[in-house]
Computed example of a mutant assay.
Amino acid sequence: MTLRPVARELAVLGPLAQLRAGRLPRRLLQLVVGLALYGASLAMLIRATLGNAPWDVLHQGMAVHLPMSIGTAVVVASVLVLLAWIPLRQPPGLGTIANALMVGPVADLGLRLLAAPDHPGARAGLLVGGVLLNALATALYIGAQPGPGPRDGLMTGLHRRTGVGLGRVRTGIEAGVVALGWLLGGVVGVGTVVYALMIGPLAQRMIPLAVVQLPERPRVPQRP
């Protein structure tokens, strides 16, 4: 019996359902590509030296004071955020673990391969390219429907447990990590503002194009 594809909408799936939902090879490939591009985009934004994405302000500040690279700081922060999921009773998915372990090493590789340009125009181009690539990577990752990343799960978990709106939760979290990262020596600038203003609208436009259609299994009629 064939399965009928559903509309391009994100499904609400538990950890096991994410693996059983169908089209797993395609979704895993899209997940890996999305996370790799996400790590590369972080390296581009950092090398633009015009201000990091909010969480990367914190990651860079951690790397200033601790014997670790920025990519390692990404992994450490991800693990700490996942520990905060425990009291929130937020279940992780395959994509959650992959996000925590993969983005940081790819960002470190990108930082080794990229040098900070001297020309202001090149730096601005690197910033714009990094934001666009980050939005595409976000769409690919979310569209594969593997479960939320550590930071997204923290946001949705706090929203669910406190009843505070998602926008206010996200703003509060990101304002906090930017402030802490800046105090630790992370770079805040126009790039931080550009990223904060543009990533939401860009990702919102791209996500519907990247959602992997999941097959809808026919319902078994209930006996009277």
Results as ranks from 00 to 15, higher is better:
R112F: 07
R123M: 12
I86R: 03
L113S: 10
A122N: 01
I97N: 00
G121C: 02
G125Q: 10
A135C: 10
L88C: 13
A107I: 11
L132Y: 12
A115W: 05
P92T: 08
I86T: 04
D108L: 05
N99I: 07
N99G: 02
A122W: 09
A100W: 06
G95Q: 12
I97D: 00
V103S: 02
L82A: 11
I86Y: 03
A135M: 11
L111H: 00
L113P: 00
A124F: 13
A115Q: 09
M102G: 11
T96F: 02
R89S: 15
G129Q: 06
V81E: 04
L88D: 12
D108I: 04
L127W: 10
I86H: 05
G121A: 14
G130M: 02
L113H: 08
G110F: 01
V81D: 04
P87T: 14
T96N: 02
L111G: 03
L94N: 02
Q90W: 10
P105G: 09
R123C: 00
D118G: 07
R89D: 14
L126F: 08
P92G: 11
A135H: 10
P91A: 15
Q90R: 14
L109K: 01
V106P: 00
G104E: 11
G104V: 09
Q90F: 13
R89P: 01
L133F: 04
L111Y: 04
V81M: 05
V106E: 04
N134D: 13
A84D: 01
T96Q: 03
V81K: 01
A124Y: 12
G130P: 14
L126Q: 13
V131C: 08
L94F: 15
L94G: 14
P120S: 08
A116Q: 12
V103M: 09
V81A: 10
A122I: 07
L133R: 05
V103C: 07
A84M: 04
H119M: 09
L109N: 05
V131W: 03
A107N: 06
A115C: 00
L111T: 01
G93L: 12
G129P: 02
V81Q: 02
A124K: 07
T96I: 10
G130Y: 06
A98H: 05
R112V: 01
G121M: 11
A84I: 01
P117Q: 09
G95E: 12
P91C: 15
G93R: 14
L101M: 13
A122P: 00
